[in-house]
Design a protein around this nucleic acid. Structure first.
Length: 565
RNA sequence: GCACUCGUAGCUCAGCUGGAUAGAGCACCCGCCUUCUAAGCGGGCGGUCUCAGGUUCGAAUCCUGACGGGUGUACCA
């Protein structure tokens, strides 16, 4: 339910009735419970425009305000705040219908669009490290979120499978893998070994260079080796995706090499538009107001990153028909995307009405706030982090006797992986990211476990109750009122998170929701003796809706819940 | 040099299109398990929101400048 816009509509009606010609500003959530549920602060802003004092304006609005349905009470406070209380009966009805709805009252978009979400994008020459975590899970969350809201989402994993380093790698693969059984367990090491061979052995280096040319010219032996290398490397990524619970499959892979055939067309099209200029032997596009040109073809005829991205944009807009294309990539590339987006629009690869956005996220730092360098041996492999998280989660599980070995394994995965993902998704994506192993593997306080724990507690109540839940939701006290209102805000939060592409708004909401539920749970007994039947049923309903909202919210974040913890 | 971005409690972070006494978690101190899962709840300690101006009835939030961290700055991706 779009709660806020419903309240805004009521304010708008009051404006019309009161004869105020201005567009009202949006209501906002009340900052404190004693100020009601929502507040409207627009009277002060209108004071100057209307030449009246704000309390008088507030009074005019208040007199025209419909207090018969959604709202039950409104009060003027301070200089002209209008505090709004939702009608408990209305809240009860609305939360009841949310509970009866498989989507928890969240609407499906009336005008869905096709959205391409480009994320993860690992390099096939290297093993995925912790730096790949953000793109992968933020992108996955965005894709899940938009799918849930009703858009048609096309996931694109733009893997790096092309470039000079592959000549060296396949030459080394050929040398080491005579019987075809090499598993490349450690890609990092393989790369280092290949590089060492390249530096030490001139013949090998020549061969590596020769192989680069041969792959590009379509030599079947080299292409076979290359394909084999990519398959193995992609297999490692898929292992990580599986552990992470990320919804990326081989069908979502649209590799750099996929665009090879389209690269000359990009150059031709830019040329035809008169956008190309030669500079120092390279083909460039000079953009107005930009100091540095976008180089699309090197002096030696080779293509670049920007060329591939232009081809990809073209493909996504024209062939896939996307109306919104979102790149979940490190903030360091913002200049690159700014330029490429501009070129793509100017060249007509992408229509004007298509939204191109760079969902940037901060750089990873070490504990001292210094950049997390890959060269000084500080790189943490993503697979190791995930495994460690699971081991640590297993150690924290209480009374292990209550579970089978398989259940413990499963539980440890759900808790451990959830903690890693949550720790990352819970911080504003734009700020820099301090990589802290301990914090990431922590299970105290504001972590996914807190949500999972609340969910399990509710399931435990249901097990104990072990009977149908009948009757209606009744808003009986302040905590019930606040809890139900919070539950009704779910759609507003999701919409907001989708517009801003910021998963942390979902985590913040879930944390607030669960905190509120924990207080409700402490103070409002459900199954204990002396609770009236009506109250008991109502509270069971509220607990049910809370559990379902937690589950749905975590599901969008790609985090699982368990019935017993 | 120029551009982008960030600067809130000891640490890690929320604070949405400006609104009432700036909020959490961790850490530290104190309470609460014979009653629905104590991986929890309640309370305490802790901040001149980097600084200086400006706009405004009203600024952590918007603008300008300074300082500090980070990033980018043409043939890597």
């Amino acid at each position: 339910m779009k709660l806020k816009s419903q309240i805004n509509d009521i304010i708008k009606d009051a404006f019309d009735k009161a004869g105020i010609k201005h567009e009202p500003m949006s209501v906002s959530e009340a900052t404190k419970p004693e100020f009601g549920d929502y507040q409207f602060n627009g009277a002060m802003a209108l004071s100057k425009k209307l030449g009246k004092n704000p309390r008088e304006i507030a009074q005019n609005i208040l007199d025209a305000l419909d207090l018969t349905g959604v709202l039950a009470k409104a009060e003027i406070a301070g200089p002209g705040f209008i505090n709004l209380w939702l009608n408990p009966l209305w809240i009860a009805t609305q939360s009841q219908s949310a509970l009866d709805d498989a989507r928890l009252g969240v609407g499906v978009r009336e005008n869905p669009i096709k959205v391409v979400v480009d994320y993860s994008g690992p390099n096939m020459a290297k093993q995925m490290h912790v730096g790949h975590l953000r793109s992968t899970i933020i992108g996955d969350t965005l894709a899940n979120l938009l799918t849930f809201l009703g858009d048609e989402v096309i996931r694109q994993n733009h893997i790096g499978d092309w470039g000079t380093q592959f000549g060296m790698l396949i030459a080394y693969l050929e040398m080491k893998d005579e019987d075809g059984s090499l598993s490349l367990k450690d890609l990092e090491q393989f790369y280092k070994d290949a590089k060492a061979q390249f530096d030490a052995n001139a013949d090998f280096a020549d061969k590596a260079r020769e192989y680069v040319v041969k792959i590009q010219s379509g030599d079947s032996h080299c292409l076979k080796l290359w394909q084999r290398f990519i398959d193995i490397s992609l297999g490692h990524c898929e292992e990580v995706y599986k552990k992470l619970g990320v919804n990326l499959t081989r069908d979502d892979v649209r590799a750099e090499s996929f665009y090879n055939a389209r690269l000359p067309k990009v150059i031709d099209a830019l040329d035809a538009k008169g956008m190309l200029a030669q500079s120092d032997g390279a083909q460039c596009v000079f953009l107005e107001g930009e100091e540095i040109p976008v180089i699309v073809q090197k002096g030696d005829g080779g293509y670049l990153y920007a060329t591939t991205d232009l081809a990809a944009l073209w493909y996504r807009a024209e062939v896939l028909g996307a109306k919104r294309i979102s790149y979940v990539v490190d903030a360091r590339q913002s200049e690159h995307f700014k330029q490429v987006f501009k070129v793509a629009k100017e060249a007509g690869f992408v229509a004007e009405d298509v939204t191109l956005e760079h969902i940037a996220f901060g750089t990873m730092m070490d504990k001292g706030g210094k950049p997390f360098k890959t060269r000084d041996g500080g790189t943490v492999k993503l697979i190791d982090l995930l495994d460690e998280a699971v081991v640590k989660a297993r150690a924290t599980i209480h009374d292990k006797e209550a579970y089978s070995q398989e259940e413990i394994d499963e539980l440890a995965k759900i808790i451990g992986i959830g903690a890693v993902k949550y720790a990352d998704l819970a911080i504003n994506r734009e700020s820099n990211y301090i990589f802290n192993w301990d914090k990431m593997l922590s299970f105290e306080g504001n972590t996914s476990l807190y949500m999972q724990y609340a969910y399990a507690r509710i399931q435990s109540i249901f097990r104990k109750h072990n009977a149908p839940i009948e009757g209606d939701i009744i808003i009986g006290d302040v905590l019930e009122h606040r809890l139900a209102t919070m539950l009704l805000r779910f759609e507003d939060v999701l919409e907001r998170a989708a517009v801003d592409a910021s998963p942390h708004q979902i985590t913040t909401y879930l944390y607030d929701l669960v905190t509120l539920f924990m207080r409700f749970y402490e103070q409002n007994p459900i199954l204990k003796e002396g609770v009236e039947l009506e109250t008991k049923m109502s509270r069971l309903h509220l607990a049910d809706l809370t559990a379902k909202t937690i589950k749905q919210g975590l599901d969008i974040l790609g985090i699982k819940v368990v019935d017993k913890l």
